[in-house]
Protein backbone atom coordinates (compact mmCIF):
# COMPACT_ATOMS: atom_id res chain seq x y z
CA UNK A 1 0.00 0.00 0.00
CA UNK A 2 2.85 2.35 0.82
CA UNK A 3 4.43 1.65 -2.54
CA UNK A 4 1.15 2.61 -4.18
CA UNK A 5 1.05 6.01 -2.46
CA UNK A 6 4.70 6.72 -3.17
CA UNK A 7 4.37 5.83 -6.83
CA UNK A 8 1.13 7.80 -7.18
CA UNK A 9 2.87 10.79 -5.68
CA UNK A 10 5.70 10.36 -8.15
CA UNK A 11 3.13 10.29 -10.96
CA UNK A 12 1.53 13.51 -9.73
CA UNK A 13 4.91 15.23 -9.51
CA UNK A 14 5.66 14.03 -13.01
CA UNK A 15 2.39 15.50 -14.26
CA UNK A 16 3.50 18.86 -12.90
CA UNK A 17 7.03 18.70 -14.27
CA UNK A 18 5.98 17.58 -17.74
CA UNK A 19 3.39 20.38 -17.88
CA UNK A 20 0.56 17.86 -18.16
CA UNK A 21 -1.41 19.48 -15.34
CA UNK A 22 -0.83 22.93 -16.76
CA UNK A 23 -2.08 21.96 -20.20
CA UNK A 24 -5.12 20.00 -19.15
CA UNK A 25 -6.22 22.47 -16.48
CA UNK A 26 -5.86 25.52 -18.71
CA UNK A 27 -7.51 23.86 -21.72
CA UNK A 28 -10.47 22.73 -19.67
CA UNK A 29 -10.70 26.10 -17.98
CA UNK A 30 -10.89 27.76 -21.38
CA UNK A 31 -13.56 25.34 -22.55
CA UNK A 32 -15.60 25.95 -19.46
CA UNK A 33 -15.38 29.67 -19.94
CA UNK A 34 -15.74 29.97 -23.68
CA UNK A 35 -18.75 27.69 -24.10
CA UNK A 36 -21.41 29.91 -22.50
CA UNK A 37 -19.76 33.01 -23.91
CA UNK A 38 -19.73 31.64 -27.44
CA UNK A 39 -23.32 30.49 -27.19
CA UNK A 40 -24.32 33.95 -26.04
CA UNK A 41 -22.32 35.80 -28.68
CA UNK A 42 -22.96 33.58 -31.68
CA UNK A 43 -26.05 35.46 -32.96
CA UNK A 44 -24.18 38.74 -32.74
CA UNK A 45 -21.15 37.37 -34.52
CA UNK A 46 -23.29 35.95 -37.31
CA UNK A 47 -25.41 39.06 -37.66
CA UNK A 48 -22.22 41.02 -38.13
CA UNK A 49 -21.40 39.02 -41.23
CA UNK A 50 -23.14 39.83 -44.45
CA UNK A 51 -23.30 36.78 -46.60
CA UNK A 52 -24.14 38.39 -49.92
CA UNK A 53 -27.28 39.98 -48.62
CA UNK A 54 -28.36 36.78 -46.91
CA UNK A 55 -29.59 37.34 -43.41
CA UNK A 56 -29.21 34.58 -40.88
CA UNK A 57 -31.85 34.61 -38.22
CA UNK A 58 -30.95 32.82 -35.05
CA UNK A 59 -33.31 32.50 -32.13
CA UNK A 60 -32.27 33.96 -28.81
CA UNK A 61 -29.63 31.64 -27.31
CA UNK A 62 -30.78 29.64 -24.33
CA UNK A 63 -29.03 27.87 -21.53
CA UNK A 64 -29.22 24.68 -23.58
CA UNK A 65 -27.06 26.25 -26.27
CA UNK A 66 -24.46 27.02 -23.63
CA UNK A 67 -24.41 23.45 -22.34
CA UNK A 68 -24.55 22.19 -25.92
CA UNK A 69 -21.36 24.13 -26.69
CA UNK A 70 -19.81 22.88 -23.47
CA UNK A 71 -20.45 19.22 -24.18
CA UNK A 72 -19.51 19.57 -27.83
CA UNK A 73 -16.19 21.16 -26.90
CA UNK A 74 -15.41 18.65 -24.19
CA UNK A 75 -16.35 15.55 -26.14
CA UNK A 76 -14.34 16.62 -29.17
CA UNK A 77 -11.38 18.81 -28.28
CA UNK A 78 -11.47 17.86 -24.61
CA UNK A 79 -11.19 14.16 -25.26
CA UNK A 80 -8.53 14.79 -27.88
CA UNK A 81 -6.50 16.78 -25.36
CA UNK A 82 -7.01 14.03 -22.77
CA UNK A 83 -5.84 11.41 -25.24
CA UNK A 84 -2.76 13.43 -26.18
CA UNK A 85 -1.85 14.23 -22.60
CA UNK A 86 -2.34 10.74 -21.18
CA UNK A 87 -1.45 8.79 -24.34
CA UNK A 88 2.15 8.31 -23.33
CA UNK A 89 1.91 7.77 -19.57
CA UNK A 90 2.93 4.13 -19.82
CA UNK A 91 4.58 3.86 -23.24
CA UNK A 92 7.05 6.66 -22.55
CA UNK A 93 8.35 5.06 -19.38
CA UNK A 94 8.65 1.70 -21.07
CA UNK A 95 10.55 3.02 -24.06
CA UNK A 96 12.86 5.06 -21.84
CA UNK A 97 13.46 2.11 -19.55
CA UNK A 98 12.89 4.09 -16.37
CA UNK A 99 10.63 1.39 -14.97
CA UNK A 100 13.28 -1.35 -15.00
CA UNK A 101 15.03 -0.16 -11.86
CA UNK A 102 12.05 0.12 -9.59
CA UNK A 103 10.47 -3.07 -10.88
CA UNK A 104 13.71 -4.92 -10.23
CA UNK A 105 13.67 -3.57 -6.67
CA UNK A 106 10.42 -5.36 -6.07
CA UNK A 107 7.64 -2.91 -6.86
CA UNK A 108 4.68 -5.03 -8.02
CA UNK A 109 3.76 -4.38 -11.61
CA UNK A 110 0.09 -3.93 -10.92
CA UNK A 111 0.98 -1.12 -8.50
CA UNK A 112 2.55 0.76 -11.40
CA UNK A 113 -0.64 0.43 -13.44
CA UNK A 114 -2.93 1.26 -10.56
CA UNK A 115 -0.88 4.32 -9.58
CA UNK A 116 -0.83 5.60 -13.12
CA UNK A 117 -4.56 5.12 -13.40
CA UNK A 118 -5.22 6.86 -10.08
CA UNK A 119 -2.99 9.82 -10.88
CA UNK A 120 -4.51 10.24 -14.34
CA UNK A 121 -8.05 10.01 -13.02
CA UNK A 122 -7.20 12.59 -10.35
CA UNK A 123 -5.93 15.06 -12.93
CA UNK A 124 -8.85 14.34 -15.25
CA UNK A 125 -11.34 14.87 -12.42
CA UNK A 126 -9.69 18.11 -11.35
CA UNK A 127 -9.68 19.52 -14.89
CA UNK A 128 -13.18 18.33 -15.63
CA UNK A 129 -14.46 19.68 -12.33
CA UNK A 130 -12.84 23.03 -13.08
CA UNK A 131 -14.42 23.17 -16.54
CA UNK A 132 -17.84 22.19 -15.23
CA UNK A 133 -17.63 24.66 -12.35
CA UNK A 134 -16.54 27.59 -14.50
CA UNK A 135 -19.13 26.72 -17.12
CA UNK A 136 -21.84 26.52 -14.50
CA UNK A 137 -20.87 29.83 -12.94
CA UNK A 138 -20.80 31.75 -16.20
CA UNK A 139 -23.98 30.14 -17.49
CA UNK A 140 -25.74 31.23 -14.34
CA UNK A 141 -24.35 34.71 -14.83
CA UNK A 142 -25.09 35.10 -18.54
CA UNK A 143 -28.45 33.40 -18.92
CA UNK A 144 -31.67 34.04 -17.12
CA UNK A 145 -33.60 30.82 -17.09
CA UNK A 146 -31.03 28.19 -16.23
CA UNK A 147 -33.24 25.25 -15.33
CA UNK A 148 -32.18 22.03 -17.07
CA UNK A 149 -32.89 18.37 -16.43
CA UNK A 150 -30.37 15.82 -15.11
CA UNK A 151 -27.39 18.19 -15.09
CA UNK A 152 -25.49 16.23 -12.45
CA UNK A 153 -26.05 12.90 -14.14
CA UNK A 154 -25.14 14.27 -17.55
CA UNK A 155 -21.86 15.62 -16.19
CA UNK A 156 -21.20 12.36 -14.37
CA UNK A 157 -21.62 10.39 -17.62
CA UNK A 158 -18.91 12.31 -19.40
CA UNK A 159 -16.63 12.05 -16.37
CA UNK A 160 -17.10 8.27 -16.31
CA UNK A 161 -16.37 8.11 -20.02
CA UNK A 162 -13.10 9.97 -19.42
CA UNK A 163 -12.09 7.45 -16.75
CA UNK A 164 -12.91 4.66 -19.17
CA UNK A 165 -10.71 6.27 -21.84
CA UNK A 166 -7.80 6.42 -19.39
CA UNK A 167 -8.21 2.71 -18.65
CA UNK A 168 -8.30 2.02 -22.40
CA UNK A 169 -5.08 3.99 -22.87
CA UNK A 170 -3.35 1.88 -20.22
CA UNK A 171 -4.63 -1.32 -21.82
CA UNK A 172 -3.53 -0.28 -25.30
CA UNK A 173 -0.11 0.75 -24.01
CA UNK A 174 0.40 -2.72 -22.58
CA UNK A 175 -0.75 -4.37 -25.82
CA UNK A 176 1.33 -2.30 -28.22
CA UNK A 177 4.89 -1.20 -27.65
CA UNK A 178 6.49 1.97 -28.95
CA UNK A 179 5.98 5.59 -28.12
CA UNK A 180 2.69 6.14 -29.84
CA UNK A 181 1.33 2.59 -29.75
CA UNK A 182 -1.03 3.21 -26.89
CA UNK A 183 -2.26 6.45 -28.36
CA UNK A 184 -3.04 4.98 -31.77
CA UNK A 185 -4.81 1.91 -30.39
CA UNK A 186 -6.99 3.95 -28.02
CA UNK A 187 -7.92 6.34 -30.82
CA UNK A 188 -8.80 3.25 -32.85
CA UNK A 189 -10.97 1.97 -29.99
CA UNK A 190 -12.90 5.26 -29.95
CA UNK A 191 -13.41 5.11 -33.71
CA UNK A 192 -14.74 1.55 -33.39
CA UNK A 193 -17.16 2.67 -30.67
CA UNK A 194 -18.31 5.57 -32.84
CA UNK A 195 -18.97 3.21 -35.75
CA UNK A 196 -20.81 0.75 -33.50
CA UNK A 197 -23.02 3.59 -32.34
CA UNK A 198 -24.58 3.71 -35.81
CA UNK A 199 -26.50 0.54 -35.00
CA UNK A 200 -29.46 1.61 -32.90
CA UNK A 201 -29.60 -1.67 -30.99
CA UNK A 202 -26.08 -1.24 -29.65
CA UNK A 203 -26.57 2.32 -28.48
CA UNK A 204 -27.98 1.05 -25.23
CA UNK A 205 -24.75 -0.70 -24.27
CA UNK A 206 -22.07 1.33 -25.99
CA UNK A 207 -19.89 3.39 -23.60
CA UNK A 208 -19.66 6.22 -26.11
CA UNK A 209 -23.35 6.96 -25.60
CA UNK A 210 -22.23 8.46 -22.28
CA UNK A 211 -20.47 11.15 -24.27
CA UNK A 212 -23.13 11.66 -26.94
CA UNK A 213 -26.40 11.77 -25.03
CA UNK A 214 -25.46 14.60 -22.65
CA UNK A 215 -27.59 17.29 -24.26
CA UNK A 216 -30.52 14.91 -24.71
CA UNK A 217 -30.32 14.30 -20.97
CA UNK A 218 -30.46 18.03 -20.28
CA UNK A 219 -33.43 18.42 -22.61
CA UNK A 220 -35.21 15.62 -20.83
CA UNK A 221 -35.62 13.57 -24.03
CA UNK A 222 -33.37 10.94 -22.46
CA UNK A 223 -33.62 9.94 -18.83
CA UNK A 224 -31.04 8.53 -16.48
CA UNK A 225 -32.87 5.20 -16.67
CA UNK A 226 -32.05 5.01 -20.41
CA UNK A 227 -28.35 5.12 -19.65
CA UNK A 228 -28.21 2.74 -16.72
CA UNK A 229 -26.84 -0.07 -18.87
CA UNK A 230 -24.23 2.20 -20.39
CA UNK A 231 -23.04 3.24 -16.95
CA UNK A 232 -22.89 -0.36 -15.68
CA UNK A 233 -21.12 -1.61 -18.80
CA UNK A 234 -18.64 1.26 -18.81
CA UNK A 235 -17.77 0.57 -15.16
CA UNK A 236 -17.30 -3.12 -15.93
CA UNK A 237 -15.23 -2.37 -19.03
CA UNK A 238 -13.03 0.04 -17.07
CA UNK A 239 -12.37 -2.59 -14.41
CA UNK A 240 -11.92 -5.23 -17.11
CA UNK A 241 -9.40 -3.13 -19.02
CA UNK A 242 -7.44 -2.52 -15.83
CA UNK A 243 -7.43 -6.23 -14.97
CA UNK A 244 -6.49 -7.30 -18.48
CA UNK A 245 -3.73 -4.71 -18.69
CA UNK A 246 -2.40 -5.89 -15.31
CA UNK A 247 -2.29 -9.47 -16.62
CA UNK A 248 -0.66 -8.46 -19.91
CA UNK A 249 1.77 -6.13 -18.19
CA UNK A 250 2.82 -8.94 -15.87
CA UNK A 251 3.83 -11.09 -18.83
CA UNK A 252 5.40 -8.29 -20.80
CA UNK A 253 9.15 -8.05 -21.21
CA UNK A 254 10.37 -4.64 -20.21
Amino acid sequence: MRAFFVFTKKELVEQLRTYKSLILLSVFFLFGMMSPLLAKLLPEILSGMELQGMKIEIPEPTVLDAYGQFFKNLTQMGLLATLLVFGGILSNEMSKGTLINILAKGLPRYTVLLSKFTAAVLLWSASYGLAAGVNYGYTEYLFENTAVHNLGFSLFCLWLFGCFIIAVILLSSTILSGNFGGLILSAGAIVVMLILNIFPGLEKYNPITLASKNVALLLGTATSADLTWNVVITCLLTLGSLLLSAILFHRKRI
Binding site: T18, Y19, K20, L22, I23, V27, L30, A81, L84, V85
Partner: peptide
Protein backbone atom coordinates in the same frame (compact mmCIF):
# COMPACT_ATOMS: atom_id res chain seq x y z
CA UNK B 1 -3.73 27.63 -27.22
CA UNK B 2 -3.11 24.98 -29.87
CA UNK B 3 0.56 25.87 -30.37
CA UNK B 4 1.68 25.45 -26.73
CA UNK B 5 -0.39 22.29 -26.34
CA UNK B 6 1.10 20.68 -29.43
CA UNK B 7 4.56 21.71 -28.25
CA UNK B 8 4.18 20.27 -24.75
CA UNK B 9 2.48 17.07 -25.86
CA UNK B 10 4.42 16.01 -28.95
Amino acid sequence: IVGPIVYFTI
